[in-house]
Design a protein around this nucleic acid. Structure first.
Lengths: 270, 270
DNA sequence: CCACTCAGCTTGTTGGTACAAGCTAAGTTG
DNA sequence: CAACTTAGCTTGTACCAACAAGCTGAGTGG
């Protein structure tokens, strides 16, 4: 049997939330209050609340209390690189959708560095047998952090083979007009196709701190490698808190007069 | 400062893992042992281990101990519905890749039911203004559970408009030869294009129990709606433990002689 | 009236104790 | 030899107590 006291607490809260007893953003009863209400110790009430936190249903803040979690993920259009628009890997209409969702103050911080390929990068950027040029093992690393309302929103790290990015605008630590895709095109490279690997995992302590995440919020990870023919042009990894981001892929031949995407769709609906 | 004792424990373990002091699958020191080693109470050692568990780095089993987590996600080729193959939404080469990864004994359990649309299903299957046929609000629900080595591996729920699935093979609770895609084609429907929504969230208690997940393992969620022109044919939601699944999308015009996908790629590499 | 301090709330951390529950392997019994 | 029991390990639950740390708003002082 698993009807322990902490699960009683958890069920009590889950029920209350399902009934809509508290509105999104509203404060829930505290540990002490809950403990007295259900006749358990504070430690047990705490464990029960932790379950709800792990499920991502509530957000607990030190000194303030527990609040009903409010998941309103922004939907990213994950268009293929070959698309007409000047979209980066996730950029199309990005800030406009953010603003639409009630956010403002979108900022970007870019750092550029040069380093030797780590194995996992080489696995994605090196094509077949090792190329034997002197700089074959070098990559230009372009790390950008997107800040929204002053908080870290998503991070993106793009790796370019040295032979592609050396002495180009890709090495300037500033926002690129037209994005990475547009800059590559201007340099004469054609991103013809791409492969995206999408998964999720829990954030490390560092990542959780950087994004300001409590336990119970996974990280959505998108890896994109774009190619010209067989040649990899770049490898981009994007890290997004899963409670604020979801990806939209379109496959097959969509009709011309495609209805506007209902950005209200969310995997968090019940 | 956040160098609490429990984070000392967590850092100690994280370092040991990063150094490779323990091999994947190997047992770590227990709570008691760790507590004595680092001169903390068992409660504190426990909290420290919990952090590593939340990060998905270790898996703790009652009565046995803590073990180095072994994330070897299966990569699903998320092909568009229009692809030639007889793939379902995630099915192409599925069981062969599973077998390749050292698993066997793949099984499927199907349940079929008929119900009125809940709002979130209607949002995806109803196109524009409400259709006024008597059975407009009905959906055929086809829920399938994939079992691997006796354990629940992924679950899939597909919703068909009643007008499409009524009195067809789609209502039989058996494995469909050719998958859902093939069956729809045989019925004269053409899945021309699709939209996939991909996100992640923490599992509910029920889901965690069903999948056998401890805390620290998110759920990867894929929602796919396929269309013939403007008409939605089906809505499929797939739930996968994120430590065992990742999705691969290909965009743009890939060359003919596409090199075999390196199924070794994983977002969990460091 | 603005800025600051601080009391009093909240959650976080740490220690302790005791017992329950799950697992394994050694030993016992038929 | 096979099946069962059980001792001894592990993690899980539950309680208590005390103090730390973060937040808020009331009150004070300039």
């Amino acid at each position: 049997m698993s009807t322990t006291k902490k699960t009683v607490v958890a069920d009590y809260l889950r029920d209350a939330l399902a009934r809509g007893a508290y509105r999104p953003g509203e404060r829930l009863p505290g540990e002490e209050e809950l403990a007295e209400e259900l006749d358990v110790s504070r430690a047990t009430a705490r464990l029960g609340m932790r379950i709800l936190q792990d499920e991502g249903r509530i957000a607990i803040q030190v000194g303030r209390g527990a609040f009903v979690a409010n998941h309103r993920p922004i939907t990213h259009l994950a268009e293929p690189v070959a698309a007409d628009g000047d979209s980066g890997s996730l950029e199309s209409g990005y800030s406009s959708r953010l603003r639409q969702a009630g956010h403002g103050d979108v900022d970007e911080r870019v750092r550029v560095s040069l380093d030797t390929m780590r194995p996992r990068v080489a696995k994605r950027l090196v094509n077949g047998p090792e190329q034997q040029s002197p700089n074959a093992g070098l990559v230009v690393i372009r790390a950008s952090e997107h800040l929204v309302d002053g908080g870290l929103w998503q991070t993106q790290i793009t790796y370019f083979p040295f032979s592609i990015a050396n002495n180009t605008a890709l090495m300037t630590p500033e926002h690129l007009a037209g994005g990475i895709a547009g800059t590559l095109r201007a340099l004469g490279f054609h991103e013809e196709w791409n492969r995206d690997l999408v998964g999720a995992r829990m954030p490390s302590q560092e990542e959780a701190d950087a994004f300001g995440l409590g336990p119970g919020t996974p990280l959505l990870v998108q890896e994109r490698v774009s190619y010209e023919g067989q040649r990899p042009l770049r490898f981009t990894e994007t890290f997004m808190p899963a409670n604020r981001h979801q990806l939209l892929y379109t496959g097959g031949d969509a009709p011309e007069n495609l209805p506007v995407v209902d950005t209200d769709l969310s995997i968090f609906e019940h």
